[in-house]
């Protein structure tokens, strides 16, 4: 319940945060909403020596659309994302997924940047970002770097983010025909299995698709077999056969009290189909 002691600095700007990160070295961690980090600190599973508060920095805020590309600032909360009319209209999968993360209080504090950087294997948004082929914008001492979401998520709690870098935002192409479906662990509300599907539809036919899973494995990742099977498939009828092998294709599957490997593999197929059907229903 009680974290270990740490030094605290409030950054007045992203630039200042970067300087503080460099000075702080490996013991320094960024704090925005804190809803990934603080629970770990309270259990003393995380004991950072320095917290750099970047909560509420204007530079990291905002949701904008430019020529069909939507950009979300890292410090936007899940609640703000869920309430965004822009997202509801142009990328409803993002608003809907955000609206179902944790609970109202968590959504009011937790940020998209924090969620992506922490990369909890049960977090929802990473799968959505991979499916949308989102670009994650990072800022470091050497300037800005952009990483595709599918490359950003590397392993459990592990992302392509230097210790001296900050996630500043994420951007992706507007996409209506995309949906996320999850099997929720009822207590923690993490995804036991969550699948995001983003489809390019031509009438009832899927011309191409990106499908990503979270919860089932160490990190959010594409289901390329499913994507291949979807290309040219007629939907929604073809969803089931395209999804059928989704779970078996995973090379590593999480296991715990709430779901064995076998169950999660099976549920990956089920929720892949459900996500595809829901996405197709939007087309």
């Amino acid at each position: 319940m009680i974290p270990t002691a740490f030094e605290y600095r409030k950054a007045g700007s992203v630039a200042e945060a970067l300087t503080l990160l460099q000075e702080g070295g490996p013991e320094a961690k960024l704090l925005a909403g804190g809803h990934s980090l603080i629970p770990m600190m309270k259990q003393r599973l995380a004991e950072p020596g320095l917290l750099i508060d970047i909560g509420g920095l204007d530079e990291l805020r905002g949701i904008q659309e430019t020529d069909g590309e939507i950009a979300i600032g890292a410090a936007m909360t899940h609640a703000e994302i869920a309430a965004s009319d822009l997202l509801r209209a142009q990328a409803p999968i993002v608003a809907e997924t955000a609206a179902n993360i944790g609970d109202a209080q968590v959504r009011n504090r937790g940020t998209i940047g924090g969620s992506l950087a922490h990369a909890d294997p049960g977090a929802d948004l990473p799968a959505v970002m991979v499916a949308l082929d989102a670009t994650i914008a990072l800022l470091g001492p050497n300037g800005e770097r952009k990483v595709q979401a599918e490359d950003f998520f590397q392993d459990i709690l592990t992302v392509d983010l230097g210790e001296d870098e900050i996630v500043t935002g994420v951007c992706f192409q507007a996409c209506r025909s995309a949906a996320y479906a999850k099997l929720e662990q009822r207590a923690s509300k993490f995804a036991l299995v969550g699948v995001a599907a983003a489809l390019s539809l031509d009438g009832g036919t899927c011309s191409s698709a990106r499908v990503a899973v979270t919860g089932a494995s160490s990190h959010a990742q594409r289901l390329s077999g499913v994507e291949g099977a979807l290309a040219g498939a007629s939907l929604p009828d073809g969803a089931a056969s395209a999804a059928a092998g989704a779970g078996e294709a995973l090379d590593f599957v999480n296991e715990d009290l709430h779901g064995s490997e076998e169950y999660r593999r099976a549920m990956t197929a089920v929720f892949t189909r459900r996500a595809i059907e829901a996405a197709a229903g939007r087309g």
Partner: peptide
């Protein structure tokens, strides 16, 4: 292994 509200499921 169910020593918190994260794993001990109670009705909401």
């Amino acid at each position: 292994v169910t020593a918190s509200f994260m794993d001990y499921v109670m009705p909401r």
